[in-house]
Design a protein around this nucleic acid. Structure first.
Lengths: 192, 192
DNA sequence: TTTATTTGTTAACTTAAGTGAAGGAGTGAT
DNA sequence: ATCACTCCTTCACTTAAGTTAACAAATAAA
């Protein structure tokens, strides 16, 4: 489990043994049960998440309806906007499967950053990379039809379609569950 | 003009007079004519952009059709994914109006970052903030209908609707120009 | 000025997503 | 075992976006 974390970090910076031990000794690993709400709308927590195993999601409750907009799986990092802006959260964060997460709070991160300037560099690289990737995702979403989005997901993250409830997938694709059902039927028909 | 830049930087870090002069002496300011293409698909430039005045956009050419997905106006920063990943660009960057930009290349930024570690901190804060903001934008896009997106834009960036051609706005909203026309007519009717 | 070209609007028609309702399968609780 | 609840699918119907085409207005080019 700890290897996953160190492998991830090594994609951005190289660490000495001392540095590795310092990070592991913080012991941020946490087991979380499916269904757990990690952050509520309006809440002002300072926690960031890194998924070692399992799946978490961002969702909203709009007019009583749950709208899931993002999934985070193995090796994905999520720092809520409420942490960045020190403001109440617009969204919920929930646990889709039993998961093992790394949970860190921003005070602690600031401390690590000042102790290990390298860590600051990693955070910059990581968030720049995520920003660029998310830009591309957003663009592809805008320029695709719901059916294309589903086909695209089928290519890029086939696992998600298996491990996540359909109604969560639907809002992730920007449509209603009924439309996703119909759309899948349509595609299936074409294939056969 | 230089004040705009320094004001922007001061939102993230504080600079000494020496540091301010060092940055200004790089003289990265560039005037760009409307219609200029700053980055082409497939190209591998190392240039990042900061808009001091005017407007630039990200667009794609998909099946011969131009699809605009993002606009950057005063005080907006844009580092293309091609710079981050050192890979050919998926998109074009074009100039919507005559603009004054700050154009920096990534080698130079690396140099500044090592000279002034503060700058590294700024870049981290900035990209974290932009990532969080873009997440919210993406989520709102997913959970809204085209009409709601237009109404939302009318609230949040009313200037854009004036200064940008309708067909670019349409793809920015994820719809066809004809649909935007119709949708506007629909709304106008309701108001009267 | 005249001619193209681009841009925005309108209209008729097609297609697909939204809506409301119903029913079946699976899950969990009592 | 029964009941309640959630989840997924299906259907009929409504609504709005996509499509194709035509046209007027504005802009750029000859």
């Amino acid at each position: 489990m700890k290897d996953i974390l160190l492998d991830f970090i090594s994609k951005y910076i190289s660490l000495t043994e001392d540095e590795k031990n310092a990070i592991l000794s913080l012991d941020l690993f946490r087991s979380v049960k499916k269904g757990t709400v990690l952050l509520k709308e309006g809440q002002n927590s300072k926690d960031s998440f890194f998924v070692l195993k399992g799946c978490i999601r961002i969702y909203y409750i709009i007019e009583g309806e749950e709208k899931t907009t993002a999934f985070y799986t193995e090796m994905d990092a999520l720092t809520p906007h409420s942490v960045i802006n020190n403001a109440p959260s617009d969204y919920f964060i929930g646990c889709v499967e039993d998961s093992i997460l790394l949970v860190s709070n921003s005070d602690m991160e600031a401390e690590i950053n000042s102790k290990f300037p390298k860590f600051e560099l990693m955070c910059r690289k990581l968030s720049e990379e995520l920003l660029a990737k998310q830009r591309i995702d957003f663009d592809k979403f805008k320029t695709s039809s719901p059916e294309q989005r589903y086909q695209n997901l089928l290519q890029s993250r086939p696992d998600l379609i298996q491990r996540v409830p359909q109604h969560q997938l639907a809002s992730f694709l920007g449509i209603k569950p009924q439309s996703l059902s119909r759309l899948r039927g349509r595609i299936h028909e074409k294939r056969s």
